[in-house]
Amino acid sequence: MLTEVLTQVALVVAIMLLVSIPLFIGRERLTRLRTDWQSRLRTSAPAMLILSVVLLFNRVMRQDDPDIGVHMTETIRGLEGEFILIFQQIGSTELTMYFSFIYVYGYTFLLIFPAVAYFALSDTRMFRRLLTSYTLNYAIGLTLYALVIAYGPRNFMPEVETVLYNASPEYQHLTREVNRNTNVFPSLHTSLAATVGLFAYHTRSSYPKWYLVATVLAVSVIISTMYLGLHWATDVVAGLALAAFCVAASDRIVGRWSLSAIYTDLRSLRERRADRSDGADGDP
């Protein structure tokens, strides 16, 4: 059943990308991408490499959770009680379908599309910042998952009809594959969606239409985590804070170190050392 769900997600997201790439990115940028991609790839390689390492580590960590965390469910529930039930007031079958779609397909698309879009910009800085932000989100989120053990609202209120797995039990195979039921704080769905939203705002002059779509999608993903009973409001707030931090930090980090500069530094260091050892005899 997992394979079926995975295939379906891959297919739907592929279609969404095929439609949106020409629509938002435009032919001109795509043509230039055809000639420039190698050099862009070269400048972005470190950011891509680090992200892959973190994603790989993410995979291992979520499978093999270390037992070092503190139980926080009671604290979170004590803090907000049954706040997320306010979304039940607008609950309907159609809305549940919409949010389920958003949570699974919309979210995946929301994360993949900007990577393509920013890679299509001649300046790779946004692309590298986006990847760096993803890396930070995962790295910090994962650390918090290990430190905070908490169950989501659906494990307390399984009877609520809009809980994702009540409406669509098949998705549980997917989420179970990538996550554990105690990994809820912070909401990475929220933080990554908000990250993409913030970037869309920064790049609104390059991609005005995407800015609108990304905002709608990001807000929908964030609401869906609570509407579908997967996250507490506390997780969402923490996710928003995490997103703000990661986006700001990526601005500081990206461009600070460049591989070629490091290479030059290292070489000059070596040369200097060589110089020094040449005349080292008399040194104390």
């Binding site: 059943m1 797995y165 009540n166 039990p169 098949e170 549980q172 195979h173 179970r176």
Partner: peptide, 9 residues
């Protein structure tokens, strides 16, 4: 993961 998906499976 759960009874509903078990039945479906």
């Amino acid at each position: 993961p759960g009874s509903s998906s078990s039945i479906a499976r």
